[in-house]
Design a protein around this nucleic acid. Structure first.
Length: 571
DNA sequence: GCCGTTTTCGGCCCGACTGTTTTCAGTCG
């Protein structure tokens, strides 16, 4: 059983327990455990194989939950979940998705009206039967109906880059509003998560009411969900929800910390506060009624004895322990990047010529780039034959004579065929400076077969980089099944770099896999996979992902200067 | 259901907005 399945099972247990009105702390225990298991970077099954009691070492998992996880792995089922489903239809869980419907109301409509599904809820709302229930009125009924409509067209989470595009003009509007003194986009956006569900904006203003007005009156606001004195919430036309919080300057740091999250990180920090008899909220750090910190973010951390922690690490995945021990990584930065190791040209499916890509890359100040056009198996991209590459090399040789400041590596994104062999002959492979390999077909192999296929490719002595290792497209295509622990091990054993593909809808490896590679001592390389010159700018999203995986510059191969990088790729 | 530098029992992070219940529950983040 995969970790993610265990996490989903526990979340479902928590949902059903909530509807049944169980002890909130018991519910929280299941949610915490779900998150812990879901973000673990080794599989539970392999942990159990090594040590039967390893699970109990995990924070928030005691004897009981460890036993349940073990049972899940052994039998594939959980008796508690079956028991809960017997009492409460599992279809009720879908009702919790609707804004305005929580566990209490789900239980209420089920017990009073026999409603079990979203469809039945909609019907009851249209018939005005919800507003007759105690505690519900016409306004709530309408809100629920709107929520159901929204749910039908609900777009998935937004890739970070897309959210950025929608938020930038809103932020400019707010900054230009008279009286606005400070403004930050917080939340998962500031943590540089690969996707964001909503966007949190924090600001300090002389005139809070005017700032709130400017926010709810923004031209692209479709719907105002809440409009209070310090808190507003809207949905933009694009479907993105944006929350605004307005605080005093004296609370700004505490609020920035609070709204940056993540929630589990905040809870962990607040617990540290509780141990020191401090109360931490979005207004500051308080001893009794006296505020002792909160104007700046570093003050908040200092109050619980910690140095400032970069937002990308705030996921409660060990950053507090690392901070306490003085072992926070010095995260890689965009300015550390000296080269881009994946890009395409008009010779295959790129939109700019080789010369244009080279010129634009040089303008970014890179020391080196790799031209990685597709090979012939990728027909839709017009992949090159061996002869095609030789023709391209003549162009590169010519460019090398004129472009002196930047090295252009002859490279290719060589297709990994079904059986793990490579889509170029040995002679051509041997003449490439860098061999990047990746999978573009037969995504439906079994986990075992796909893992074997890729490991075999990594064993090839000419291979330097594994491109977009899991093949996912955010919101469009799931990663193909893969035993990432095996892939990382193979990368280490055969000296292959793992790519962080910086395309905003790939970001592949994900943050957890990056951390896994780093822990195994496998270097990553960040490539933009640019298909046009504008996409060379995606590098920063790849750097964000590396930072979320705790990477320092030394963990990222393309932070090396040219000479050191050349040495690294000598196999 | 978890956990322990006050505790193996009795705690468990904290606050805003909305609607409707005339004082607060439910929901949300």
């Amino acid at each position: 059983m995969e970790n993610i399945e265990i996490a989903k099972t526990f979340d479902e247990v928590a949902d059903l327990l909530e509807i049944q009105g169980a002890n909130p702390f018991r519910i929280r225990a299941y949610r915490t455990a779900a998150r812990t298991i879901g973000t673990l970077n080794t599989s539970v099954e392999s942990m159990l194989k090594k040590n039967g009691h390893a699970l109990e070492e995990l924070p928030g998992i005691g004897a009981d939950l460890a036993g349940k996880i073990e049972g899940l792995c052994r039998t594939g089922g959980l008796p508690l979940l079956n028991e809960l489903k017997r009492k409460t239809p599992e279809s009720l869980v879908a009702l919790l998705r609707i804004p305005g419907v929580g566990p209490k109301r789900a239980k209420l409509v089920f017990s009073k009206l026999g409603i079990k599904t979203l469809g039945q809820l909609e019907k009851a709302a249209r018939a005005g039967r919800l507003s007759k229930l105690p505690g519900l009125g016409a306004a709530t009924e309408q809100a629920i109906l709107r929520g159901i409509e929204q749910d039908k067209v609900r777009t998935a989470r937004f890739p970070l880059a897309e959210a950025e595009a929608y938020i930038r003009p809103l932020v400019e509007t707010l900054r230009a509003t008279p009286g606005v003194e400070r403004l930050d986009v917080a939340g998962s956006f500031r943590r540089r998560a690969e996707t964001v569900g909503d966007v949190d904006i924090l600001l300090a203003a002389k005139n809070a009411a005017a700032a709130a007005e400017a926010f709810v009156g923004y031209k692209d606001v479709k719907q105002v969900l809440a409009h209070g004195e310090t808190k507003c919430s809207v949905v933009l036309r694009c479907g993105l929800q944006v929350d605004l919080r307005i605080v005093a300057e004296s609370s700004y740091g505490a609020a920035l910390h609070y709204f940056t999250g993540s929630k589990p990180h905040n809870i962990a920090v607040r617990l540290l506060g509780v141990k020191r008899h401090l109360k931490i909220n979005e207004y500051g750090v308080f001893r009794g009624k006296r505020q002792i910190a909160g104007r700046t973010e570093p003050e908040v951390f200092a109050a619980v004895g910690l140095p400032w922690i970069p937002p990308e690490l705030r996921e409660n995945r060990g950053e507090l322990d690392a901070a306490r021990a003085g072992r926070l990584p010095r995260l890689v930065e965009l300015t550390d990047i000296r080269g881009d190791l994946q890009m395409h040209t008009t010779d295959t499916d790129g939109r700019n010529t080789l010369a244009e890509m080279v010129e634009a890359s040089a303008a970014r100040g890179y020391e080196y780039i790799a031209i990685t056009d597709h090979t012939k198996a990728v027909r839709v991209a017009g992949g090159l034959t061996e002869a095609g590459f030789r023709k391209q090399w003549r162009q590169i040789d010519a460019i090398r004579k004129t472009v002196k400041k930047m090295t252009v590596f002859k490279s290719a994104e060589v297709d990994i065929l079904d059986d793990g062999s490579l889509d170029l002959d040995e002679e051509t492979l041997a003449e490439l400076d860098i061999v990047l390999v990746s999978v573009h077909s037969r995504f439906n192999l079994s986990k075992t077969a796909m893992t074997r296929r890729i490991v075999r490719a990594l064993q090839h002595p000419r291979v330097h980089v594994l491109g977009h290792p899991t093949g996912r497209l955010l919101g469009k295509r799931e990663p193909y099944p893969l035993d990432m622990e095996e892939i990382v091990k193979a990368a280490r054993d055969y000296g292959v770099l793992l790519e962080i593909n910086a395309q905003p809808d790939r970001l592949d490896l994900n943050d957890l896999h990056v951390a896994m590679a780093r822990q195994a001592g496998v270097r990553v390389v960040i490539g933009t996979d640019a298909h046009r010159i504008e996409e060379l700018g995606c590098m920063r999203y790849g750097v964000d992902q590396a930072r979320r995986g705790w990477c320092e510059a030394t963990d990222v191969a393309n932070t090396l200067h040219l000479d050191a990088f050349r040495k690294l790729i000598q196999k």
